[in-house]
Measured scan of single mutants.
Amino acid sequence: RKEMTAACTPRRRIINLTSVLSLQEEINEQGHEVLREMLHNHSFVGCVNPQWALAQHQTKLYLLNTTKLSEELFYQILIYDFANFGVLRLSEPAPLFDLAMLALDSPESGWTEEDGPKEGLAEYIVEFLKKKAEMLADYFSLEIDEEGNLIGLPLLIDNYVPPLEGLPIFILRLATEVNWDEEKECFESLSKECAMFYSIRKQYISEESTLSGQQSEVPGSIPNSWKWTVEHIVYKALRSHILPPKHFTEDGNILQLANLPDLYKVFERC
């Protein structure tokens, strides 16, 4: 597991931080080997919608929660590849102030007048994250320049770009939802926020969305749709870069829909 690298990086740093090793061990302890084997050997059937997909393993048909699986995938990559990410360069710098204002204007932020003026909160978020810029760049390849612009994001899987519609809320939550006081809790909560931002979430995906850094293989055609990215990038990574937690067998994120021999018997009677 320590050699797990989802995106190509030129050289690998050895990380011996106790906090990170502890988080890696927790993933191992909570892992479910049968689910790992199923995901490793599954045959992708198709997307139901951005949140759900169908896959077959041996004779069984499964309904998989793409949102939760991708979130767990990105969390584990962030923990196992800690401080070893490439950088996704933004085509132009994104001012943190503008991103924070967009987030505060969104109902998702939960902002009320009692929280104070949005401009003041946005300025605080910019200054707060600028103070964390060195650590964010060093460990997470999340790059913020001296003017308070976001200029780079971590490359977690080759050819995958997170849904940038979720970027404003991500920046807001970096400042408000991460435990910045304790090292282990900081790395864990920061990785979880980043994983949620990178995950496939239906509120940020339309039929026209593209999450891939590449064009489709047909010359002159439109960019790959999110469905292509889910199948050929995300579920491909799920084959080798995730140890599913045991609770996925109990919380409805992986559901067995049918045993195909039983279905064949039904059709034979028709």
Rank of each mutant, 00 (worst) to 15 (best):
V20N: 07
E183S: 04
V34G: 12
I144W: 01
A83V: 02
F82C: 01
K246L: 13
A175M: 15
Y264C: 05
P107W: 14
I15F: 12
K68W: 14
Q58Y: 14
Q56P: 00
Y235H: 13
G166A: 08
G116T: 14
Q256N: 07
S19K: 14
I125A: 15
S240C: 14
A103K: 00
D158M: 06
I169W: 15
K130Q: 14
G220M: 11
F82S: 02
P95Y: 04
A94Y: 08
I14C: 08
T112R: 12
G120N: 14
K236F: 15
K132E: 07
R13I: 14
E231M: 13
S206P: 08
M38G: 02
L211F: 07
P223Y: 10
H247I: 13
K132Q: 04
T249H: 04
E134M: 04
C194F: 05
G31L: 09
L167A: 04
I144Q: 01
I222N: 09
R13W: 15
L174A: 01
P162Q: 00
N224P: 06
D98W: 15
M4H: 09
F187R: 11
Y62L: 14
T18I: 15
E26P: 13
R89D: 13
E114T: 06
K130I: 14
Q214P: 05
L255D: 08
L121N: 01
Y235D: 06
F82E: 04
P244T: 12
A6H: 13
A94I: 11
R11F: 14
S141H: 12
L99C: 05
T66R: 00
M101G: 02
K130R: 08
A94E: 02
T229P: 10
I200F: 03
R239D: 11
Q256T: 07
I169C: 11
P50Y: 03
N149Q: 07
V34A: 07
L102P: 00
K236T: 11
L238D: 00
I14V: 05
A175K: 02
A6Q: 10
T249A: 09
L61K: 01
V45E: 07
G110D: 01
L35V: 10
N41Q: 06
M101T: 04
I14F: 10
I254S: 10
M38A: 07
S91A: 06
A94S: 06
F97Y: 03
Q76S: 13
A55F: 06
F197V: 07
I151M: 08
L150Q: 00
R11S: 13
G252S: 08
I151N: 06
L99Q: 03
I15P: 05
A100L: 02
A53M: 13
E123C: 14
P154Y: 00
H232R: 12
V266E: 15
M101A: 09
E37G: 10
L238R: 01
L211V: 07
Y75H: 13
L90F: 12
K192S: 06
I157M: 14
G152R: 06
G116C: 15
L243S: 08
V48Q: 12
L23N: 14
I77A: 14
Q24M: 12
E25A: 10
Q58R: 10
C47H: 04
N16H: 11
D158F: 08
K118S: 15
Y235G: 12
E188V: 08
I242Y: 13
E231R: 14
V161A: 04
G252I: 10
E183W: 10
E119I: 10
L238A: 07
E29T: 10
Y75V: 02
S212F: 10
E92S: 04
L238M: 07
A6Y: 14
E134L: 04
H40C: 10
A53T: 10
Q214D: 08
A83Y: 02
T229S: 09
P93N: 05
D181S: 03
I14N: 06
S106M: 02
I233E: 12
V45D: 10
G116P: 15
L136K: 01
D115S: 03
I233M: 14
F82T: 02
P219N: 04
F140T: 06
K227L: 09
N41M: 09
L243I: 10
L164Q: 03
R12H: 12
N65A: 02
V48T: 10
H241Q: 08
M135G: 02
G252N: 06
P245S: 13
L255T: 03
N253L: 04
S206Y: 09
H42G: 12
F267I: 12
L61E: 01
W52H: 10
I15T: 03
E113F: 11
E114L: 13
L17V: 04
N41T: 10
T210W: 06
P107E: 11
Q24A: 13
R11K: 10
E33V: 12
I15C: 13
I233P: 06
L96N: 00
Q76E: 13
G31F: 13
L39V: 13
N149W: 14
E26D: 11
P168A: 10
S22N: 10
I125R: 01
L243N: 06
V230F: 03
L121H: 01
Y62T: 13
A7S: 11
E123V: 12
S91L: 11
T66Y: 02
W111F: 10
H40E: 08
E113D: 13
P93V: 10
S212H: 08
E123Q: 04
I157E: 05
I79A: 08
K2P: 13
E193F: 02
T9Q: 09
L39S: 03
G46S: 02
A6P: 12
I15N: 13
E217Q: 10
L164A: 02
S225R: 09
K68P: 10
G252D: 04
N41S: 05
E185D: 06
L238H: 02
D138G: 02
K265Y: 14
V230L: 09
Y75N: 14
D98Q: 08
Y198L: 04
A122V: 14
E113Q: 04
N259T: 06
Q256V: 06
V87D: 11
L61R: 00
P10C: 14
S19I: 15
N179R: 03
T249S: 05
V266T: 13
T5V: 11
R11W: 15
P245M: 14
Q214G: 07
C194S: 08
E72G: 10
G46A: 03
S109N: 04
E146H: 06
Q30D: 10
S19M: 14
E123M: 14
C194W: 12
F97W: 02
S22A: 12
V161K: 06
F267D: 02
T59H: 09
Q256D: 09
Q76N: 13
A175G: 03
I233F: 14
P261N: 07
A83F: 08
G46R: 01
L121V: 03
L64Q: 02
G120F: 15
S199V: 11
I79G: 14
L90Q: 00
G120Y: 13
L96I: 08
L190H: 00
D181E: 06
K265L: 13
P261S: 13
F187I: 04
E188F: 10
S199H: 02
V161M: 04
E119N: 07
G110W: 12
P244F: 14
P244K: 03
L164D: 03
N49C: 07
L260W: 07
P93D: 03
L21T: 03
H247R: 06
K246I: 05
E193S: 08
E143K: 03
C194H: 07
I200W: 07
I222H: 09
N84R: 11
